[in-house]
Amino acid sequence: MRTTLPLGEAIPQQVPPVAPTDPFKSFPSVSTPQKMPKLNSFSTMNPERPAAPVSKDVKLRALLKQKGDPVEQGLVWRVFSPVPGSDGKLPLLATSQGGSADFQLIPGEYFVNVAFGRAGATRKIRVPENGEAESQTLVLDAGGVMLNAVSGPDTKIPRTELSFSIFSSEVKDDGERPLVVADVKPETVVRLPSGTYHVVSNYGSVNAVIRADIQIEAGKLTEATIQHKAAKLTLKLVAEPGGEAIADTAWSILTGSGDVVSESVGAFPTLVLAEGTYTAVARNKDKIYQRDFTVTAGLNSDVEVYLDEKENAEASAKAARAED
């Protein structure tokens, strides 16, 4: 784990989640946000007062955890009026992106929300009429995770063939887990509230799926590598071993129990299969050819189906011996 990344109170329904750019404190910091213009359009002061209120400088900062360092980038700040508008939503008065924020606010009450990826915190603050406004610190209680995967012991999986989905660890009454983040690419930092999450890794689009539970700690970046027991295969219908692939071939891949897991058409389709024993069925010019084969984790290879039934039988017997 690398220590670098904070969630407090729940974000109100009016506050949409925002996924800012990647920002642990160890990463390069961004420039300090510019001061927001004075907000003269809103005040909770008594309207009978003749003198216009003077805006105050309000400084805001966010921590990933209690007693942690302020987050220096990747934050999105929003300041809301506490009085709902005609649509029932809290009016958005000002925003700022980056690290700590500095707002000019008229004395009164406000809701302040800070978002850090899918983590966030909201607090009601009061800007006093007399004296200087104090700085406000919000604790996000958040961390981050960066996912990757290999096939077999150490075979690197191409980025385009790998994806992750992150789910809540809690299971609903219907047996499903709430989805938190979908289609996460490898080596992408995802910022989340601290807690346990259920990760599903997909290698290819057939049946190479691995699940794992991952703990996210406040203020830390967790790097997790998942090991797939799968391999990439290229199917070929050939007249002889090592021969040229025959075009216009329809393919079906069956598991040992006879379930169809993949269907395709082409001279040499490529697919990823989980470790195990399969049957490749090739159809060409109203004729059917088939052979059994074994998938070994991390061992990418060609699977040749022959026009000669004897050669297919020998290849199937070899696969059976390898499985034993």
Results as ranks from 00 to 15, higher is better:
A142K: 09
V54K: 15
P12K: 15
V114R: 07
D57K: 11
Y197G: 00
W251A: 02
D173S: 05
G117I: 09
S29D: 14
E129D: 09
L90V: 13
A52C: 09
G276E: 01
N113Q: 13
G74I: 02
E275A: 05
P50L: 11
P50T: 13
V303K: 09
A119H: 09
F167N: 03
V200C: 01
T95Q: 15
N312Q: 08
A274F: 02
V30A: 13
A274S: 09
V114I: 13
V112G: 06
L138P: 11
A297F: 04
G258S: 03
K287C: 02
V209R: 02
T122C: 08
A133L: 00
G143Y: 04
D183S: 05
V30H: 12
L235W: 01
Q290E: 12
M146Q: 13
A239C: 07
T225S: 03
G204E: 02
I125K: 07
P158C: 05
S100N: 02
T122M: 13
V260T: 14
L307M: 14
S41W: 11
L92S: 11
D174L: 05
T21F: 13
Y197P: 03
R211Y: 00
D69N: 11
K156F: 04
V15K: 15
E48T: 15
A224K: 07
V261P: 00
T249H: 03
S29W: 15
A250Q: 07
A62Y: 12
S169K: 05
G219L: 04
S26D: 15
E129S: 11
E132L: 05
A224S: 06
G258V: 01
T155Q: 12
G88A: 14
M45Q: 15
Q13M: 08
E304C: 10
V145D: 00
T234H: 02
A315Q: 15
E244N: 15
Q227T: 06
K318R: 12
V260Q: 09
G8Y: 00
N284E: 02
D141Y: 08
L63M: 11
P50Q: 14
A322K: 09
G143K: 09
M36D: 12
T294I: 04
A121L: 09
E72A: 13
V200I: 14
V79F: 13
T4G: 03
I246A: 10
S135G: 10
T249P: 03
N40R: 14
L233F: 07
D183R: 00
G108K: 11
M146S: 13
G204C: 05
T3Y: 06
L271W: 10
K38C: 04
